[in-house]
Amino acid sequence: MIKKIDITNPKFAKEVLNIQIPSYKVEAELIDFYELPPLKDTVETLQHCEETFFGFYLNEELCGVISIKTENDIVKIHRLIVHPNHFRKGIAKKLLDFIESNYKSFETIIVSTGSQNTPAVTFYLKNGFSKKEETRVTEHLSLTSFKKEI
């Protein structure tokens, strides 16, 4: 089941952080870059990020999270994370489908991921996104942005 998360509640922010840290540690290993900003988040930074969070729950356990911001006709995905214990269960797809179904009045979804994060790049391409640009952030990190018309 997918439901909105009140990220301003410290209990829920901690639950999200307990998904985010292990998920981004996997990405850090995949792209060989361990200074990812989401690994430095705290309950407090999540509470003040101004993103809208939705969680995928399996038997009352939070297993995956998507967070978005909306502006004009654009939905920007800021986080699409699944706990490593729940990889390959279709949770990311269900969260993405939820956003597409519930934000039909918007025209575009955009998202970025580490360019070397092959599973994420493959996921977005497989789900109808097209690559827009690659940006070198540091000597060791580049991000690829994707766009999908909905």
Rank of each mutant, 00 (worst) to 15 (best):
E15S: 10
V16P: 11
N18F: 01
I19F: 03
I19C: 12
I21A: 10
P22S: 05
Y24W: 11
V26E: 12
E27C: 04
L30Q: 15
F33Q: 00
F33D: 01
Y34C: 02
E35A: 03
P37C: 02
P37I: 01
P38G: 10
L39W: 02
D41Q: 13
D41N: 14
T42N: 08
V43T: 13
E44I: 07
T45F: 13
Q47S: 10
Q47Y: 05
Q47N: 10
E50C: 12
E51I: 10
T52G: 11
F53V: 11
F53C: 11
F53E: 10
F54G: 08
F54Y: 15
F54R: 08
G55L: 06
G55Q: 07
F56A: 04
F56Q: 07
Y57E: 07
L58T: 13
L58V: 06
N59F: 03
E60Y: 09
E61A: 06
E61V: 11
L62Q: 04
G64S: 09
G64H: 09
V65I: 15
I68R: 13
K69P: 13
E71C: 10
D73Y: 05
V75R: 08
V75P: 05
V75T: 07
I81E: 08
V82D: 00
V82H: 05
H83S: 02
H83P: 04
H83C: 02
P84L: 00
H86P: 14
H86K: 11
H86M: 03
R88F: 08
R88P: 11
K89M: 13
K89G: 05
G90H: 07
A92T: 03
A92V: 04
A92H: 04
K93Y: 10
L96K: 07
L96D: 00
D97H: 12
D97Y: 13
D97M: 14
F98R: 11
F98K: 12
F98I: 11
I99W: 02
I99M: 05
I99L: 04
E100Q: 14
E100M: 13
Y103T: 08
K104Y: 04
K104N: 11
K104T: 14
S105M: 15
S105H: 14
F106C: 04
F106I: 05
E107Y: 12
T108D: 12
I109F: 09
I109V: 14
I110L: 06
S112L: 00
S112G: 08
T113S: 03
T113H: 01
S115W: 04
S115K: 13
P119T: 01
V121T: 07
V121N: 09
T122R: 14
T122V: 12
L125A: 07
L125M: 08
L125T: 09
K126I: 00
G128K: 09
K131V: 09
K131P: 02
K131W: 07
K131L: 10
K131Y: 05
E133N: 12
